[in-house]
């Protein structure tokens, strides 16, 4: 996959668009964008994006592979689905944004210190272990995401809320040790493994 990163992409050719179609979830929709800009105008976080969705789609068509995949923009999506509802062409924009993010992560091109990216990785790893999200561990992981001292500080600050939740049986400190899971965590992991195999095979087909 590494050689893909340096593959010469000609401008305004279909190469990168085809790569996106093959590798990104719902990527085959990118070519259907008609550049009306309704998505960009509808995004509640639009001002925080370097490149709004419409622009990202044009960049893909223009062959700006590096710029798109290393971009912070698609990580800003909060899945409000405003754009999907409004897109006159019916593009699943939210899904494409997550698809792009996920593909960039897999290629190792996603921006390293992007908070959404960090959270997404923590969440996923937390989830697949038992098939249930362990809220206590996820919370603690988040506290310590940016280092030990900041983690202690945040934890102390949240002390009262934590005790309150314990008292009202919203959260058990016992979850720290293993915690509860779904009925067949091994089965779930097998499913995910198989899904990954299928996806990889698909990509292999495109890349070969």
């Amino acid at each position: 996959m590494a050689d893909l990163n340096v593959a010469a992409i000609e401008k305004y050719r279909n190469n990168f668009l085809k790569e996106v179609e093959a590798n990104v979830e719902e990527g085959e929709w990118v070519k259907m964008c008609m550049q009306c800009g309704v998505c960009s105008g509808s995004c509640p976080l639009g001002s925080a994006w370097d490149h709004p969705p419409q622009e990202l789609f044009m960049m893909i068509r223009a062959g700006k592979r590096e710029e798109v995949l290393t971009s912070d923009s698609m990580w800003m999506c909060t899945s409000c689905y405003n754009c999907v509802v409004r897109c006159p062409r019916g593009l699943p924009i939210t899904h494409i944004m997550h698809g792009l993010a996920s593909y960039a992560l897999r290629l190792g091109l996603a921006p390293k210190n992007q908070p959404t990216r960090k959270f997404a990785v923590l969440f996923w790893e937390n989830l697949v272990k038992t098939g249930r999200v362990n809220e206590l561990k996820l919370g603690l992981n988040l506290y310590f995401m940016n280092g030990f001292i900041e983690g202690i500080k945040t934890a102390l600050g949240m002390q009262k809320i934590g005790l309150g939740m314990w008292k009202t049986k919203r959260m058990s400190p016992m979850e720290f040790f293993g915690g509860h899971g779904c009925k067949d965590a091994k089965g779930l992991q097998a499913i995910l493994k198989k899904a990954r195999e299928i996806e990889d095979a698909k990509r292999q087909k495109f890349n070969s």
């Binding site: 305004y12 279909n14 070519k31 259907m32």
Partner: peptide, 24 residues
């Protein structure tokens, strides 16, 4: 891009679907 007529928009979409690149 202006595609007048009843089928104009369908034809535009068909072009996009075939991989015709449209650049503003």
């Amino acid at each position: 891009l202006r595609t007048p007529g009843a089928g104009g928009e369908d034809f535009y979409r068909s072009g996009q679907d075939k991989g015709v690149l449209f650049t503003k």
